[in-house]
Amino acid sequence: MSTAPGQEAKSPLIRLRGVSKAYRRGDIVVPVLENVDLDIEAGAFEAFMGPSGSGKSTLLNLISGLDRPTTGVVEVGGQDLARMSDKELSDWRAGHVGFVFQLYNLLPVLTAAENVELPLLLTPLSRAERREHVAAALEVVGLGHRMGHRPPQLSGGEQQRVAIARAIVTDPDLLIADEPTGDLDRKSAEQVLDLFEVLHHELHKTLVMVTHDPHAAERADLVRHLEKGLLQ
């Protein structure tokens, strides 16, 4: 492919080619994704929509290295995830991916600060450095004053913001959000989406979000639709 003079050749951060995924239920093979080709540029904010069972979450799992394709190539940052061992994938996720889940997935026995600190336990940072990173991440999401609170003491919106702080505390390239507003009221959802825009526009994070919510999808640069495992 040729490039115009003065224009830098830019390879996508995420590149999927001929990706299919099927699950086996006993003797039956259930196809979930079929022959998906996809490029997502670094710094993009893209949303995936589609009905239940369309393969959105499976696609997200493949992009984030939580699952492997049945066939095809999944490259993120130039690395072929399918060729990595489980341990290599763990290390890769720890360094490159932050997760935001629909149900927040915070450990209820830990404080907000401790939850945010969890991914940092896998880094060589000292305790003092970890504490600084945690404080900074919680400040970004506006919860610097709730560090000592445990999840049950926080509202749903606050819990999701703690989860976002946890996702960004290691400064990953890629943020994966699976129905991040699915369990929130409108006001809390807007706060979370505002945060995503800050992360996207000001911190230049690449955001890939799966959602059922059209309002949430509107915040993305690009909305893609999946239907019965096919990317429309």
Binding site: S64, L66, D86, K87, S90, D91, W92, R93, A94, G95, F99, F101, L103, N105, L107, L118, P119, L122, R166
Partner: peptide, 14 residues
């Protein structure tokens, strides 16, 4: 199960 899977998703090895 979900908490432990969350840790694994973050990069905690098995």
């Amino acid at each position: 199960t979900r908490d432990l899977s969350t840790l694994r998703a973050m990069g905690f090895k098995s």
